[in-house]
Write a protein that binds this DNA or RNA. Structure first.
Length: 292
DNA sequence: AAGGGGCTCAACCGCCACGCC
DNA sequence: AGGCGTGGCGGTTGAGCCCCT
């Protein structure tokens, strides 16, 4: 027995959305809010799968989407975030207001990959292509916090291993935001041991200062998409937990983020990538930072 | 003008995580 | 604890467009 289909495929439309379908979906979400995607198509009078409705809304119809070309700043930010996170498109999208994971994924595959290859950089490993293909002897790793306001601190410390390293300091700025990531990168020298073995008591900590979300929230309220301003945690997608300060809950959410709960609140010590879903600590799960 | 190849990006598919019962 | 339903994510596909010959 295979998996049961997510919806009754025999009675659903597929392929490109028509203008009328778009209008129906927008009207329904404006009236009733996002969420409960499975029942939405029927309620909205759409012959579409709930997933398809969700995708259409998130990737195309949301009012806070930024259409148009990526800027050079956004390019560089995507590259740096990708070097840090790998193909975690939703996390990357969470740091680019108005951009969707699908959009960034497409843009990466069509533009940035080629751009990096032209620069002689392997788009997967972010290392020079010759070096990358020759060996796996150096891994870019971020370490040691650079603490100040408006800065993401990324710590990577080990008390028991002291590899010989070259260090680089790098900053990632966020377009239209005051925050930036500062990090040091080091290259290890010919150490073939797996990362867990090299850093047995690995301590990963990600924090970020309060991003400026007022403009986005204001826009949604102005559009009539949000009935009340959401608390910061809700605006980051952390809608369903103790973090919520405005009482909003899943299915009570109207409009909002791409659904990828990213971001942080430095005052509470949330992980800036929204990776610690259950445990609201600032420590990241190791799986979330797995290196590809 | 035609057609073939490459590119773009919206949409789909399958899997996984999480919450609820 | 485990099954089920649902939402979310990343990889892939394919229609439409563009450019070159």
């Amino acid at each position: 027995m295979g998996r049961s289909p997510c919806c009754e495929k025999a009675h659903t439309n597929k392929g490109a959305w028509t203008k009328e379908e778009d209008e129906r979906l927008i009207a329904y979400i404006k009236a009733h809010g996002e969420g409960c995607w499975r029942s939405l198509p029927k309620a909205a009078g759409l012959l579409r799968c709930g997933k398809s409705c969700r995708l259409r809304w998130i990737n195309y119809l949301r009012p806070d989407l930024k259409r148009g070309n990526f800027t050079e700043e956004e390019d560089e930010l995507i590259i740096k975030l990708h070097s840090l996170l790998g193909n975690k498109w939703s996390l990357i999208a969470g740091r680019l207001p108005g951009r969707t994971d699908n959009e960034i994924k497409n843009y990466w595959n069509t533009h940035i990959r080629r751009k990096l290859i032209n620069r002689g950089i392997d788009p997967t490993t972010h290392r020079p292509i010759q070096e990358s293909s020759a060996s796996q002897d150096s891994k870019p790793i971020q370490l040691e916090p650079i603490t100040s306001n408006n800065t993401i601190n990324i710590s990577f410390t080990s008390s028991s291993s002291t590899p010989k390293v070259e260090t680089f300091q790098e900053s990632i700025s966020f377009p239209g935001k005051s925050e930036k990531i500062s990090m040091l990168t080091f290259k290890e020298e010919k150490d073939e041991r797996p990362i867990e073995e090299k850093f047995p008591d690995l301590n990963l900590e990600l924090r970020i200062s309060l991003p400026d979300v007022a403009d986005r929230r204001q826009g949604l309220v102005g559009e009539g998409i949000l009935t009340t301003p959401r608390c910061f945690n809700c605006s980051l997608g952390m809608i369903n937990g103790m973090e919520c300060r405005c009482g909003r809950r899943r299915c009570d959410v109207v409009g909002g983020s791409s659904g990828s709960g990213n971001g942080s609140d430095i005052s509470n010590g949330f992980d800036f990538l929204g990776l610690a879903k259950k445990e609201t600590t600032s420590l990241l799960g190791f799986r979330s930072l797995e290196m590809k």
